[in-house]
Design a binder for these strands. Structure first.
Length: 465
RNA sequence: GCUUCCUUAGCUCAGUCGGUUAGAGCAUCUGACUGUUAAUCAGGGGGUCCUAGGUUCAAGUCCUAGAGGGAGCGCCA
């Protein structure tokens, strides 16, 4: 008999018809006469109730139907006699596909901490919480592709292995086929990469931006969406060693249009979640964060603040003058600490902030220099609770200015001739941003730790599963 | 990487001033109950108190080192 997904079965009104569902048992309860199985197949956060008459199905058979077991249940779809669900299935046959020994199965019906579930990450997708998170994660990926596709962007695949060492976004994981027990070194004691797989030092990418710019200089509007790797020893609830990043790059736009894009894009994703993940968001709202849905709604209803760095510093210094205490100083030229960002976003404005025009010393070499010669056209989006969710900028398209900055910073560009060629041949004004996918997930799900919004998190000292 | 906290039953956690046989809730098992909603009720089993040293008549408890985990900070997305 053809299997019906539980999501569909719960919507059906074909009372009296025979139906088959397959899934994993969440719980079973009952008495000598009747037993109730809560069954979930991942198609929805909701379970379907299988009612088992013990005169029809033996206790011997039912013994194997424990929390975590996988079963196929056939029966008659009926209006529920009990409260709590509209429909249920009066079972006529139950086949056990796979048992789950209650003595060793790590998931129980009740109370697990997020920390514990990380230790059983291979099974945690079977929990309500992770089912919800993973369905939302899928939806956010589809929302992102849909947004860019509908706006005329092309999905551009940038390499995961790179030989350019100057992306400046942090420590890289090296990629080599060399025998690490017997490294060939030259007369200066340097490792000789000439016989390595790529003939030079290679690493996993920390950003697809530089290659993305090449795409934008031909296709006009592109975006990347792929895994990104940082070997930084970051131990926080907001960092992963392997994460997914979205990086649109757009020719012929300026700062205002870049900010419009950042804001419109984020609102589109949040709106998508509210519209397409209502059940899952409601669960997360009920179980973890009673203000989640209201917070998501407020983001799409509100206009983001657009705040030049210099004005931000003025606001912070005014606050300090009025007695607000911060751990770190914030004078013009300093990078803002988390506490400063949070003050602006959560206390002063109480809404998302796009901060612009940062001192050039605290930003990357490729950002477009303003006429004041002191600030660059960065456009970072700061969100409540998350902090920086987007890092964006207008790019410096002038070859001489870009080279001057590269030389001033002594960035090794000998392997980067191809990037500089974008400014030598048909250079164009352009801009783009990077969005950490899991940071978006943190915001949309209300989860507190980034390790809980990706199926198998990689962090320092942790690469199980 | 820095700071700080935590580690006791399958899970979540109590455990007083260092003192007899280490407890609870949930889970699990057994039994009861004619429709339950994380069912309820009764009973049973279940412990390398993270590891290694040390102090002490006596250590889950105090000290030292280590391991694992969380949080804050830094770096960043």
């Amino acid at each position: 008999m053809k299997r019906t997904e539980i999501k569909e079965a719960l919507r059906s009104i074909n009372y009296g018809s025979e139906i088959n569902v397959k899934g994993w048992v969440r719980s079973r309860r009952g008495n000598k006469n009747v037993s109730f199985i809560a069954l979930n197949d991942g198609s929805t956060i909701k379970n379907i109730q299988i009612v088992v008459d013990l005169e029809k199905i033996t206790e011997e058979q039912l013994k194997l139907v424990t929390t975590g077991a996988c079963i196929s249940a056939t029966g008659i779809l009926v209006e529920s006699m009990g409260k709590g669900q509209a429909v249920e299935i009066q079972a006529t046959d139950i086949e056990v596909y796979g048992t789950a020994d209650p003595l060793t199965y790590p998931l129980q019906k009740k109370g697990h901490t997020m920390e514990y579930l990380r230790e059983v990450a291979h099974l945690r997708p079977r929990t309500n919480t992770f089912g919800a998170i993973l369905r939302i994660r899928h939806n956010m990926a589809i929302a992102i592709h849909t947004y860019f596709h509908e706006h005329g962007y092309f999905y551009f695949h940038t390499p995961l292995i790179t030989a350019s060492d100057c992306e400046g976004a942090g420590q890289m994981f090296q990629v080599t086929t060399k025998n690490l027990y017997n490294l060939k070194k030259d007369e200066n004691g340097q490792i000789d990469y000439s016989d390595d797989f790529f003939g030079k030092m290679a690493a996993l990418t920390v950003s697809g931006q530089l290659e993305g710019e090449l795409g934008a200089m031909a296709l006009g509007k592109i975006y990347t969406f792929g895994p990104t790797f940082r070997a930084e020893n970051s131990n926080t609830p907001r960092h992963l060693a392997e994460f997914w990043m979205i990086e649109p790059e757009v020719a012929f736009i300026q700062k205002e249009e870049l900010m419009d894009l950042e804001e419109d894009f984020l609102k589109y994703c949040v709106r998508w979640a509210l519209e397409k993940c209502a059940d899952d968001l409601q669960f997360l709202n009920d179980m973890f964060d009673k203000t989640l849905i209201a917070r998501l709604q407020s983001v799409i209803d509100t206009e983001f603040v657009r705040l030049p760095y210099t004005e931000g510093i003025n606001i912070l210094q005014e606050a300090i003058k009025n007695g607000r205490k911060f751990e770190f100083p914030c004078n013009w030229g300093d990078d803002l600490a988390s506490e400063h960002e949070r003050y602006l976003v959560e206390e002063h404005f109480d809404k998302p902030v796009i901060m612009t025009d940062y001192p050039k010393e605290i930003k990357a070499f490729y950002m477009k220099l303003n006429e004041d010669n002191k600030t660059v056209q960065g456009t970072d989006v700061l969100f409540p609770a998350i902090g920086e969710i987007i890092g964006g900028s207008v790019r410096e398209e002038d070859y001489d200015k870009l080279m001057a900055e590269i030389e001033r910073r002594q960035i090794p560009m000998k392997d980067m001739w191809w990037y500089l060629d974008t400014r030598r041949y048909g250079s164009a004004p352009h801009a783009g941003f990077g969005l950490g996918f899991e940071r978006l997930m943190l915001f949309v799900t209300g989860m507190q730790n980034i390790r809980d919004v990706i199926p198998f998190p990689r962090t320092p000292k942790s690469a199980e599963f």
